[in-house]
Design a protein around this nucleic acid. Structure first.
Lengths: 233, 233
DNA sequence: GAAAAAGATTAATGAAAGGTTAATCAGATT
DNA sequence: AATCTGATTAACCTTTCATTAATCTTTTTC
């Protein structure tokens, strides 16, 4: 599993974009370089980034509008703005100031890396939250033994494959909550593309089949977003 | 009552200290200038500062050690470090990263002011901004769960589409304020033309239908301008 | 106060996304 | 080499939802 921090670099200038993306890769970030706003948005739909580095001057869309759009869909992702002119604070105030920084051009790459690291470390104050992994779970009328990859309904038991087991565990951990395609695919498949998304559908379908003996258990789809596991009363 | 923000400037260099303190006074800060660590500590005992601007290189005491001392007594006060060398992040990590910034010399006074304002405003996040961080909102008698794209009224819940969700979130973010067609279309549709404006109307209509169980919630149209979401009492 | 423009509402449409089952393929195991 | 296992890909069908159209209502302007 790739532990590197994923950064989206939005920069239309070829040479600066190349320079920064290469430098950040050397510094062990997983960099995606979007050369315009449209590509940036597409990237954001399909991946979870830890941070966005955004040039304010873009050819197709104003950098601030792009930032606003990102904030609506992904309110916690921190930004670093790259700007030619010095910004007035009131322009920045529309954003969550706790998760924002800016750098004036010309960009000092080392400075950028430092600020990226500060912002990212601010996100993970401490990783205590990992809740204890129980091994026996209850899902409606089923018993789910994740350690032994078994799903038990009355006297019938289904042995799950590793993937089915992981997926069900993930859905269960986030029950009643949207589990975004991109989150699931990032975590379990490691790659988010057309085929893996198709594959995920096959697995969801299979889980539904396994779970159909209890009709209160629903794996619902949120169009273009992901799935929600819920047990209705 | 003096409403100005009180800043402690710790800087041993005469000319830089004078320059910065005068500049900050012009920018309407209440500046105390301490020329060494001892004076700085004495100042901190007797006053509450909103922010400390601290040169890392001081004659009598290392700036970081001073900072640590201040943090013990006044853990919430944000810092800005002025530094000649570029800092390694791990040096900074000892501090509350949420309340810290740094500037490399030579200092650009305007830049300093901007960063001071950002840090101070981070201490007083506006109500609207705080609301937006949340994912569960209240609209009249409804609960709006934007993360899961749900609108809940009593025991009835409506699942929203992505567009409906974005639009409602935008209106809510700007509640009681005009949301211009132009802004909405630019932001959510990316293009402002006849057809998209028609499309927006369809969505507004749909949101009204979803929200009609609470008659105090109104999405009003301002002719040729845009829409306003408001909850009347 | 009538014509024109803008807005509201409901319904129809079509492309894209999702669901399901079956076929294939790759790696492990006998 | 044959078999088994489990993920991926393919084929085909269904659902979803933004757009467009059609029709009616309100507002503005002269």
């Amino acid at each position: 599993m790739d532990k590197r921090n994923k950064i989206l670099l939005v920069e239309d200038d070829e040479s600066l974009g190349y320079l920064l993306s290469e430098y950040l890769k050397i510094k062990d970030f997983d960099v995606s370089w979007a050369k315009n706003g449209e590509i940036a948005l597409k990237n954001l739909e399909n991946h979870n980034f830890h941070l966005v580095v955004l040039d304010v001057m873009l050819p197709d869309i104003d950098g601030f509008n792009l930032a606003k759009k990102i904030k609506i869909e992904n309110p916690k992702t921190p930004f670093i703005f790259l700007t030619a002119r010095s910004l007035k604070v009131d322009v920045l105030k529309g954003f969550s100031l706790g998760a924002m920084d800016y750098l004036k051009k010309p960009i000092d790459e080392e400075e950028l890396v430092t600020r990226i690291e500060v912002l990212i470390s601010r996100l993970h104050p401490s990783d205590i939250e990992q809740d204890l992994q129980k091994e026996i779970h209850q899902i409606g009328a089923y018993v789910f033994d994740s350690k032994n990859q078994k799903l038990i309904f009355e006297n019938e038991e289904t042995v799950l494959t590793a993937r089915e087991n992981e997926l069900l565990l993930y859905l269960l951990k986030n029950r009643n909550q949207l589990c975004a395609h991109k989150d699931i695919l990032d975590l379990l498949w490691g790659k988010n593309d057309y085929f893996n998304r198709k594959s995920l559908n096959v697995f969801i379908s299979r889980l539904r089949k396994y779970l159909k003996s209890d009709p209160t258990i629903k794996i619902r789809n949120l169009h273009k977003k992901g799935f929600v596991l819920r047990v209705e009363d």
